[in-house]
Each structure stands twice: as C-alpha cells, then as structure tokens.
Amino acid sequence: MLKAKPALCPFCGRPIAPPQNLGFQYSDFDAGFCDCGAVYVSDVTGHNQGAAFVEALLLACGGNWDLAWELSPEEDYQEYVLEHYDQKSHQVFGDPSDRVSVRGVLYFLRLVDEIRELSAEKIAKLKQEKRKTETPPEGFKPKRLRRQEIEELLRKDKSQEVVFHCRFLPVNLSTLRKVLYSADPLLRWKAILTLGEAAQAVLKSRPDIVADLIKRLIYSSADSAASAWGALETVGEIIRREPERFGLFVKNLFAFLKYPEFRPAALWALYRIGEKKPSLIRGERVFVLVELLKDATPETRALATLACASSKILEALKELKKLTNDDTEVEIFNPEKQIFERRTIADLAKEAIEKIEKEN
C-alpha cells in the first residue's frame, strides 16, 4: 500500500487547492496560489523543473518579465520543490519504493513581502528603466527570412547576418530553429551555435521570447526524441552565453540523462556550459556524469568525458584513468573549428585527466 499524504504549502503548512490551468497567456503549466502568497506550479513529468521555476517566478511577478529577471534567489524569493507529487489524486507519495513511478513535482516560490507589495507605479517605472530600444545599424534592413535563406547564409559562414536579422526581428528565431531538422549534420550544428548567439542578442530587448524559446526546446525534447534534433544542444548554447539568467535549466539537462536516447545531447550541453560556468555543473549530481563514463555506448563515454573535463570534476579521475586504454574512435563536432573530428576515448580521457589535475 503506497503511503500518501495531502499536498501542503511548505511555507505555511496549509492545504492547497489542486493546480489548474489559470488561463494566462504566459502560463503553460497548471498552477495555483496559496493564501500565504506562495505560487506553485505542477510539473507532471518531473524533468521540466527549470521551466516550472520560470513559470512560478513569472506568475509571482504578475507577468512582469523585467521585474522577474531582476530578482535574486534567497534575497528576493524562496523556492521549494515538493517531489513525488501526483496531480490526479493531488497527493504526495512518500514511499521510497515508489520514487520511480511517481515522478511529478510541485514547484513552490514565494516573493519576500516588500517585493509582493510593490505598487503598480514602481513596477512600471522599473520596466521603463530596464527596457532597451535598439535600432539597426545604418544601411542594414532586417527582414523576415525564409528557411532556405537562413540555410544559405549558414553554408556561406554568414551567421552574423542571421544573428542581426534575429536581433531586430525576433520572429526569425523560429525560422532558424527549423534548420535544426536539416538532414545535413554540419548545417544543424551551425544552426545550434547560431541560435545560441541569436538568443543572446534578442535577450537584450525581449527576454520573454528567449525564455519561451528555451521552454519550447525542452518541451520538444520531452515529447519526442525523433523530432527534437539539436534542441538540448541549443539549450546548452543559450545557457553557456547567459549562465546567470538561465543556469536554472541545468537541472532539466541532468534530468534527461536518465534516458539513453537523450544522453548525447544533454551531455554535449553540459560540456559546453561547463566550459564557461563549471560551478553550475558541479552544483548538481556530478556522480551521474561519473557513472556515464562506464556506459556501454562509446558516444556517451566520450561526451561524459568532455563534460567531466570542462567542469573539472575531481570525482571522475578514477574512472577517467580506466578509459586511458579505451581506443574506441568516436566522431565529435568541434564547435571552434566547426568541423567533425575523429577522436579516441583514450585521448579524450588523457586530456580530461590533465585538465582536472591541473585545476585541483
């Protein structure tokens, strides 16, 4: 018999109403509000916690993106994750043996009193101060690009033109995203890198569009591995460029490591993020990365090696030393040279060991 208990607010201890579709234009999850001022969002899968956090923060701020992105954890709000939540019964299952079958979570967030009590006038003033208006450089006329036009620009290594068109006409991000479905592997990778840069450019004036893009990329991966080529890798590129704003989505990437079909993409993303902000990776369950160094799939071992190396994970040294005799070859995309390279896992492991030992 499973042990179940009612869902309670972690901040005030009172029972909460079942989450529901609130009907807001910026809300994708079922959510609710506690009388104590907390907001809660239901993630039925358990691996969209980053997106659930964004949703909760936005709801708490009344849909004000500019205010939401200015807030700092602990100082401006508190958060809590209630695990093993089943939305159908609106109960929490605490039996450790049931942790696999009940994966849903309730994500709670409560702003500090002073933030909740901000007057509409102060919020409007903050929004006015933070919103930036930009005009295209002289002689440059942004236009809505067709997929074929974007592909041609990427083939000619004119990614900066694509970035400019996205920056001043963000609708182009959606078209650029379609290139991820290209049958040409090199073109897909160029689209991934360009999407990361373009998203950073759009972020200056429309953070809401970039946050929505990340959520859609994660959703598409969760729905179907076959139709999500490049999605998680793109999430990694966006976080890599804006780790302070989007680092919370690293939890989502770790969640995807449970599933073999998603591991290469998620590992690639973590490897790229680790190069710029290793603390984001080291703050998560790094033992998962260490375990994947023993995976039966060569590509997974290779990418786990890169991820451990980029974040300088000391706990990985023992397993990495075992890989120095692994002469299996894998094909790895080099983002700096934008070419595919054949590397042995042994060579990757030796390089990883050198980086980690040098750091520690």
Score class of each variant (00 low, 15 high):
Met1His: 12
Gln25Gly: 09
Cys36Tyr: 10
Ala38Asp: 08
Tyr40Gly: 10
Asn48Gln: 15
Ala56Gly: 11
Leu59Tyr: 04
Asn64Pro: 00
Asp76Lys: 04
Asp76Asn: 14
Glu83Phe: 04
Ser89Val: 12
Phe93Asn: 03
Gly94Ile: 13
Pro96Ala: 11
Pro96Lys: 08
Gly104Cys: 13
Val105Gly: 01
Val105Met: 06
Phe108Ala: 08
Leu111His: 06
Lys127Tyr: 05
Glu134Ala: 13
Lys143Thr: 14
Arg144Ile: 05
Leu145Arg: 02
Gln148Met: 08
Lys156Cys: 01
Asp157Gly: 00
Val163Phe: 06
Pro170Arg: 03
Leu176Tyr: 01
Ser182Gln: 06
Asp184Thr: 09
Thr194Leu: 11
Gly196Asn: 11
Ala201Cys: 07
Ala201Thr: 07
Ser220His: 12
Gly230Arg: 07
Thr234Pro: 05
Val235Tyr: 02
Ile239Arg: 07
Pro243Val: 09
Leu257His: 01
Pro260His: 09
Arg263His: 02
Ala266Val: 11
Leu267Tyr: 05
Tyr271Gly: 13
Glu275Cys: 06
Leu289Ala: 04
Glu291Lys: 14
Leu292Arg: 05
Ala296Gln: 14
Thr297Met: 08
Pro298Asp: 03
Thr300Asp: 04
Asn325Phe: 10
Glu331Val: 14
Phe340His: 01
Ala346Asp: 06
Asp347Pro: 00
Leu348Gly: 04
